[in-house]
């Protein structure tokens, strides 16, 4: 049963008992390492990890493109592996180590990749690029062979609508060569 209102007179508050709207949630203490710093937060364990990073820690480099794990704009490293933070919860971070793009941009290989993406003029709107940087970083760390098929595979969870991917591949290939 809802409160029926005639379309023409939405007079808010009249006849409604004052009651604060709340989202029922039980907070939990979540501890994790964020970009090499130990952090702790009291939070609804089901809150999206993406929102925690953006809202509670102000790390807005991690973007929301689709909210269902299909575009990769929200990619972070969770215990060293690239994952989409929009379909993870606070609880998934508990006791784990997280790197966001801000942390990766400070690492040696992160900087190398930024140089390469910059040199090829690969970046267009840039909304998906923090995600691409994280996935590319993981590829360089774990494999790093200059191999187009492998690179395509490593980046296959990240969608870009601007570039047609060509210059992204070129940049990662360039980084593979420079790293070795």
């Amino acid at each position: 049963m809802g409160m029926h209102l005639g379309f023409l007179f939405p007079s808010w508050g009249l006849g409604t008992r004052y009651r604060k709207s709340v989202v029922k949630e039980k907070k939990m203490k979540i501890n994790f390492i964020l970009n090499e710093n130990e952090v702790s937060i009291d939070v609804d364990p089901m809150k999206r990890l993406l929102d925690i990073l953006r809202e509670d820690f102000g790390l807005t480099g991690t973007k929301e493109g689709c909210g269902e794990g299909e575009c990769g704009a929200c990619t972070i490293l969770l215990d060293g592996k690239p994952v989409t933070s929009c379909i993870l919860n606070a609880i998934h971070a508990d006791g784990k180590e997280i790197y966001t793009v801000e942390g990766i941009a400070e690492k040696h290989i992160g900087k190398l990749l930024i140089d390469c993406f910059d040199e090829t003029n690969a970046v267009q709107c840039g909304f998906c690029f923090p995600g691409f940087l994280v996935s590319s970083y993981y590829y360089l760390k774990t494999d790093g062979e200059k191999n187009l098929d492998k690179i395509k595979k490593a980046l296959s969870g990240n969608i870009c609508r601007c570039t047609g991917y060509q210059k992204i591949f070129e940049s990662v290939m360039m980084a593979c060569v420079r790293k070795s």
């Binding site: 969770l78 690239p82 994952v83 989409t84 993870l88 998934h92 996935s135 296959s156 990240n158």
Partner: peptide, 9 residues
């Protein structure tokens, strides 16, 4: 399966 990002979770 899906994508490497989803395979990880």
């Amino acid at each position: 399966f899906a994508s490497p990002l989803l395979q990880n979770t």
